[in-house]
Design a protein around this nucleic acid. Structure first.
Lengths: 147, 147
DNA sequence: TATCTATTGAGAAAGATTATCAGTGCCGAG
DNA sequence: CTCGGCACTGATAATCTTTCTCAATAGATA
């Protein structure tokens, strides 16, 4: 975990951007909540425990930078706010399972889309560089409540 | 086209909701721009050509109703505003191709996800009721501009 | 230390959507 | 025909997330 934080710090420290205390605090929070898909507000609340005087704008600005550097992914689950996910070392392509009852978000590894992407390229001449795939439904805990 | 509008009118006219002139105008616009993925504002502008005094709130309220009735789908392409798509007669499952250069949005028919959905159900106990799949890349017109 | 920028915090501003509320139109009962 | 109820409407205020602005500050370098 600490080694992960070190790697993140190094990635940020490439000359283009300064490594400030605020940015360090944000990296720590992202590191310690790897699998949570936090919103900017949630990150803000947690960073203030480490650095109480930070401003919300700084959270947004830093997340923009980290997104540019491909250190985090900005996600949109359709709930009206962006969510952020730390990019892991291993490419680890995955999709999201969004539970319509409890709102939990889990992940599916694997990627069976290559075949479909080939078809799209061949038949539509569309050059794919990324995709977004979400499944909506009911998680193992909730599916029984929906008869 | 007119027959499509008639079908839409009938679907709306089920006793639960009144068929008002404003709602008729909105249905007409949706009908005449089937493949456009319009935003609320764009629908607003076009409806005002038929019914100049309509209010924006009525557009939103009607689109909510039509979404409830499963007559339109609310889409989110990540550009900060919702977009709306008329639900076609034939189930016509499809995905969206979003061009990162010109912003055009086209569609791919076909659905190769059933296999993947089975896997998700079996391995995660997650009951899927819908999915969202978008491909990001460059369309046939734009791909050559990106070296 | 002095200087030059990037960075920051606070608050204003933007932009999409929703809530509020008084007024309107429609329909059925009397 | 009139009345009363109620869904619907338009205007506008309010909400919520995100971005912008700007003066003040901090960090790196010479």
């Amino acid at each position: 975990m600490d080694s992960d934080y070190g790697k993140l710090r190094d990635k940020l420290d490439t000359g283009k951007y300064k490594v400030t205390r605020q940015r360090e605090a944000i990296l720590q929070v992202l590191c310690h909540h790897k699998d949570e898909h936090m919103s900017a507000e949630e990150i803000y609340d947690r960073v203030r425990e480490l650095y109480p005087d930070i401003g919300l704008a700084t959270i947004y600005r830093t997340l923009d930078i980290l997104t540019d550097l491909n250190m985090v992914h900005r996600l949109d689950f359709g709930d009206g706010r962006a969510r952020y996910e730390l990019v892991q070392d291993k490419p680890h392509h995955h999709h999201h399972l969004i539970c319509l009852r409890c709102g939990s978000i889990s992940e599916v590894k694997d990627d069976l889309l290559y075949q479909l992407e080939e078809t799209v390229d061949r038949e539509h001449g569309f050059l794919i560089v990324d995709h977004r795939l979400q499944f909506l439904g009911y998680c193992a805990n909730c599916r029984d409540f929906n008869s």
